[in-house]
Design a protein around this nucleic acid. Structure first.
Lengths: 217, 217
DNA sequence: TAATAGTTTTAGATAAATCTAAAAATTTTT
DNA sequence: AAAAATTTTTAGATTTATCTAAAACTATTA
């Protein structure tokens, strides 16, 4: 099996690949891991030796199929545990990330399948992210960030692309939580803020906030 | 917080203290941890520096109050997770030990309390061992090992003092599981084996097996 | 009580993951 | 395309937990 640290590297590389499509840079990984570039280089060599990444010196990395599969396994576990924490243990969706970061490394394939069953094979985690099934397949999100929508369009809040507590608490206060349906009234020219209809309420969110809200059309 | 390894040492020392009452020897710990005496000595110094154990060279160790509290926290988590695995995820009682060994190190006080609540504040784990409450208090077992019982006495199987899979599977086959009431018919002089009445069945178990079955009188 | 056996500790190494500082490679700017 | 800026890698340490082999201590036994 892979160590906790290796799993964390794979996960970060996976997420960065998603955002970027190209190869992932050493510094980007160092950022995402809260570590230094030199440490990343060391680990990249190790992951490369294990055939989990394709790595060319100075050129960045991509995950191999093996590496991608390993990353997706960790992500599957992370998201299932988040569902458990929110649905069963009554945590708020903004409290679960850090605990799931620990639980995702528990190493028991049976446990994961039993947990999935116990939770009713959920398709999305509490932040709206898709949960890979046991073969690693998932419905890729056809989502749009709120600031990219146009007047008159409707959708459902399906997730966020920032997970910090202050941000999630702010959303909670505005009533902008997962599953909430909304309609865009106007994208303000002046400051890019978005005017929304949520139920019977008219709400304005700044561009900065809109950039991190994902809408399923 | 304490590292996984430190927590495991504390747990082993706690269990050995229970069995022995006196101080715990280096070799006994090495045995319990599947490691070597030299490694144990290194760790004992560290735990001693952290005031988790009282340690005198060549004289063995005892847990300090701080160390005992830390050990009991780990044991509480271990046993709660075992209840979760058996009650909610439908594992058999002989399958849960190893997974709980991993889950016991998840570090989130809130999580433990929520889990306890979710499970209905259980008092015993699936092996019949008491679960410490959030203050570390628990009903000490007034249990007797089966081989120490006398003819005619009755009791309920409340636990086992060995947790290996082969042993637990053997018990399962004999129908000797937690909560089963039984009566001792005879302790055989010749080989120390125990003749039992379990329901309408007459069962004979070897002394070796009897030594690891705990009975609540 | 002296010799032997057994246990525990020290000394010195190793492996994993990290770091700082300096060198090498790449990219950007002029 | 040379100079400057940035990124990445190497070299050499550090920390944690482990190990083997040898030394030191304790307990047993003759």
């Amino acid at each position: 099996m892979h160590s906790f640290t290796e799993e964390n590297y794979l996960k970060v590389i996976y997420h960065l690949s998603q955002a970027d499509t190209g190869t992932v840079q050493t510094n980007a990984i160092a950022n995402g891991m809260n570590t230094k570039a030199a440490s990343v280089t060391d680990m990249l060599k190790k992951l490369s030796d294990k055939k989990l990444i394709d790595y060319i010196k100075y050129q960045g990395v991509t995950l191999t199929e093996k590496g991608r599969a390993a990353a997706i396994k960790v992500i599957r576990k992370h998201r299932l545990w988040e569902v458990f924490l929110v649905d069963k243990l009554k945590f708020r969706w903004d409290e679960v990330h850090d605990i799931a970061e620990e639980l995702e490394h528990i190493n028991s394939p049976v446990l994961v399948e039993r947990l999935d069953d116990f939770l009713g094979f959920p398709k999305r985690d509490p932040h709206g992210d898709p949960i890979p099934d046991k073969d690693g397949n998932f419905e890729p999100s056809e989502n749009v960030h709120l600031h990219h929508m146009t007047s008159g369009k409707s959708g459902i809040i399906i997730g966020v692309s920032e997970h910090s507590s202050p941000f999630l608490i702010h959303l909670e206060k505005l009533g902008l939580t997962i599953g909430v349906p909304l309609t865009v009234l106007e994208i303000t020219d002046y400051d890019g803020s978005v005017e929304l209809m949520v139920g019977t309420q008219r709400i304005n969110v700044s561009r900065k906030v809109a950039e991190h809200i994902l809408i399923k059309l």
